[in-house]
Write a protein that binds this DNA or RNA. Sequence first.
RNA 1: GCGUGGGUGGCGGAGCGGUCAAUCGCAUCAGACUGUAAAUCUGACGCCUUUAUGGCUACGUAGGUUCAAAUCCUACCCCACGCA
Length: 382
Amino acid sequence: MINFKITKKSKKSNARIGVLSTPHGSIETPSYVNVATQAVVKTFTSEDIKDSGGQILIANTYHLHIRPGEDAIKKHGGIHQFMNWNGPIMTDSGGFQVFSLGFGKDYGTGKILKQKSSEKIVSGSQPKAVKITEQGVEFRSYIDGKKLFLGPAESIKIQEKIGADIIFAFDECTSPLADHEYNARALERTQRWLQTCIKVKKSDQALYGIVQGGKFKDLRIASARYTTAQAVDGFGIGGEFGDSTTTMKSMLHTVLKELPEQKPRHLLGIGHVKDVETVIKEGVDTFDCITPTHYARHGYAFVIYKSKWTKLNLNNKKYLLSKEPIDKNCDCFTCKNYTRGYIHHLLRAYEITPLRLLSIHNVYAFNKYVENLRGAIKKGAL
RNA sequence: GCGUGGGUGGCGGAGCGGUCAAUCGCAUCAGACUGUAAAUCUGACGCCUUUAUGGCUACGUAGGUUCAAAUCCUACCCCACGCA
């Protein structure tokens, strides 16, 4: 079980400071949730997570189900023991993979639309590689092509065996190309799935229900109200909210207004650095995002320059002769010990080490940034 | 010296009369990435410009054949291997 206590509410915004207590310790919110999809923050040891200021992780049901399988994890004593991480862990339910391996793959889009498209996903359509039914979703394993089925009951049973502190209800993350009707049907189904999740769950893990509805305000409100009325311990906010920070902000505002203040809210998969402050000011308590580690492995470092976030592409030739650290104001292991030029060289040489060095910096920078925002809220500045 | 096989864009290496500024790989230059099928993917990559079913210069060098040559012929220069 978890306990969530709000210790301070901002007068300037909807931001709040809180303490989220779990069987594996407490974290201070707002907090970035470090992404450990396959029970690892990519390139990290679990000790590195702590060193980079990480408080809490999120792993993934779908990925751990196909490999190594929840039974193996259970035999290892649960995910905490398995990965040697004693702090809090969440597991995502697999609902995002309904999208990413389905319509996301079919149309080559992320959950946030980058460019306008005339394509429309209408009610009744099915993605190619994934079949969505009332009972759940039929996937094919990307490892051996075998069929596998994940529904609300399956997802919960798997998550119980994995043993995270906080688990998510199985939902359908819809495509940004899906129309209102599609989203409405998907949302109703997600709501029925939530009922099943609640019914099936036997463990004392905390269960978050997920608010969906895409970019449609009426659906978002309906979803927020419905989820609020269920026996959930917290809320996930999933899917897309439109294609800009502005639309995201207003949709988040609409949704969070509907949710009970005393329960924690987790924003799923959102957190471009430039959006983090906005999201926190709207009252999000935790959020996860792959960008720090994902961009790191593609050679990018996030840096605050003239009080704005920018990203450096350390693959670029201009960094070869640089003796500077990634960020001279950063206290991370990488910035304390290595130069941009060296990291550039290692990237060009396709070595593994720079991916780790950049991940350490990016994750540290993310966690530090959020820590600073907490400080600002406490001081009444945000 | 003789014989054989070669010399193509930064490199390796296709092409062997027209659709070739030239497949492909590497290198190079840049871009994308938001609950991670992601150490991935995309674009550019002779020069010039009004960026175009545009112009120019190019496939060792110099000639030639042909309406048309990286592709055929001749000479020369270089390289590799083999034999003396």
